[in-house]
């Protein structure tokens, strides 16, 4: 019935689902789940504030690594929504650039809806939501030029970041922009940590989207996410101890 080598994964998956369900129920019952503050998230308001003060754009730069929708681009949607809602409130100039052909219409929809919902449709400029496509270095230069032309005040670099991270972060730094970086790609984290004022690294990117909404169902998922980490930690510790004692039992169970 089960595919070979998937039993342990299925057990973990079911446990995860159970914790999501429990978390959702708990939040709906009114249990207050305490979450840590994510400086990278609160920094979005600070960055919008700076853009408002200087009258220069907040630049949401959402990158994908291929011509299809990706989890990190999806997770970035909520960050863009949060940033644009804040920008509309303070009437700060706002720009969004993406190289994701699938993500671009989503960002257009999110940004235009934010202006409509705030009753300021006249401030929405479709040319400020741009698709600058391509996944090769050549097209990154176009974005760097745009950043320079617009003299951006703040930048959110997010998504499935690859070699372009340094190009955008260095350009932003040269323009004196306040920068927030978000990705789960381990290979780009050192650059974001080095160049950005704030960062949302690894699972923080996914947690941020949930924490913006405080929606009970999403908070349940966040609880499951954190419980899963604790469970992984327990399995790692037990596995290491077992291995040191000469037993391969944990590895064998996980391979089943």
């Amino acid at each position: 019935m089960l595919n070979a080598g998937t039993a342990a994964k299925l057990v973990f998956f079911c446990l995860f689902m159970a914790v999501v369900y429990w978390g959702m129920k708990a939040v709906r019952r009114g249990v207050n789940i305490r979450t840590k503050q994510l400086p990278g998230l609160t920094a979005i308001d600070e960055a919008v504030g700076r853009a408002t003060e200087l009258g220069r754009p907040f630049f949401a730069n959402i990158q994908a690594s291929g011509p299809h929708i990706e989890d990190q681009v999806l997770a970035s949607c909520e960050l863009v929504r949060y940033a644009v809602q804040s920008a509309v409130r303070y009437e700060a100039p706002f720009m969004c650039v993406s190289n994701s052909p699938d993500g671009h219409p989503i960002f257009e929809e999110i940004i235009s809806s934010a202006y409509m919902a705030a009753g300021k449709p006249e401030l929405y400029n479709p040319n400020n939501v741009r698709f600058i496509g391509g996944f090769s270095s050549g097209t990154h230069v176009q974005i760097m030029q745009l950043m320079k032309d617009e003299n951006i005040a703040a930048q959110l670099i997010s998504g499935n970041l690859m070699n372009q991270t340094m190009f955008f972060a260095e350009t932003g730094a040269a323009l004196g922009a306040i920068q927030i970086g978000a990705t789960k790609n381990t290979h780009q984290m050192p650059f974001l940590a080095m160049q950005c004022d704030y960062s949302l690294l690894g699972d923080d990117l996914y947690a941020a989207a949930t924490m913006i909404s405080r929606d009970p169902v999403r908070m349940g998922c966040l609880t499951a996410q954190e419980t899963g980490k604790a469970l992984a930690l327990v399995v790692i510790v037990v596995g290491v101890v077992a291995r040191l004692m000469g037993s391969n039992a944990v590895v064998d169970i996980l391979r089943r």
Binding site: F16, K184, G202
Partner: peptide, 18 residues
């Protein structure tokens, strides 16, 4: 790296489920 990857993978599963 592995610690970050496990956390991020759980985030991805959570997003996928949602």
């Amino acid at each position: 790296m592995r610690g970050i990857m496990i956390g991020a993978a759980l985030g991805t599963i959570s997003l996928g489920l949602r």
